[in-house]
């Protein structure tokens, strides 16, 4: 049955893809070769669509592949398959972490893990920034200026919801880019 197949295939992706959305792509390539549910060029389209719709990319991919393969029930099977392993694993870790978060060993360890995470987040930012300001066909100076202005405005008006900035960004893109 295709639904069980989709659930199982995406369960495996959810279990083995460590590190977020992009990490799922090699698994999906492999899936396309083994199952024939979609071709590699269809996969390229799916990646592009998943990147440009809101939501976490891994989830978008699972929903899209499931939907294209077997309709709405297919989308449901693959999405639940993808998230099931992480939900179970995190529930176990969360229980342990909340129990031991006052432990001095855990406290010291996390005080050094946090700056490492700052490095990780900065790298993600660096990748997005490269895509936005350098690897672009459009103008480069204008987006830079817009970004700096927005950052200054964010600093001044701290209570504005991120959706406002995203909306302003979309308008800026339509008008100037």
């Amino acid at each position: 049955m295709i639904y069980l197949g989709l659930f199982w295939e995406f369960f495996k992706v959810g279990l083995f893809a460590v590190g977020g959305g992009m990490a799922t792509i090699p698994f999906l390539m492999d899936m396309s070769v083994r199952t024939g549910w979609f071709t590699t060029s269809e996969l390229a389209d799916m990646i592009a669509v998943s990147e440009s719709t809101p939501g976490p990319m891994g989830v978008n991919m699972a929903t899209y592949v499931g939907y294209e393969t077997a309709g709405i029930l297919g989308a449901l099977s693959s999405t639940i398959g993808l998230i099931a392993p992480s939900v179970v694993i995190i529930l176990v870790i969360a229980r342990l972490l909340l129990k031991f978060h006052e432990n001095p060993l855990v406290k010291t360890t996390f005080s050094y893990l946090r700056p490492a995470v700052i490095g990780l987040i900065s790298y993600a930012l660096y990748e997005v920034a490269r895509l936005t300001f350098i690897d672009t066909d459009g103008p480069m100076a204008l987006p830079c200026i817009a970004c700096i202005l927005m950052l200054a405005a964010m600093h001044k008006f701290k209570n504005i919801h991120p959706v406002v900035w995203i909306g302003l960004g979309a308008v800026f893109g339509l008008v100037f880019l």
Partner: peptide, 21 residues
């Protein structure tokens, strides 16, 4: 137009992420 809007959204996302970092 969708592509233009997304280029602009990415600029906003950069500013938001920078401010969070």
């Amino acid at each position: 137009y969708v592509m233009k809007a997304f280029s602009g959204i990415r600029v906003a996302v950069c500013a938001l992420m920078l401010s969070a970092v």
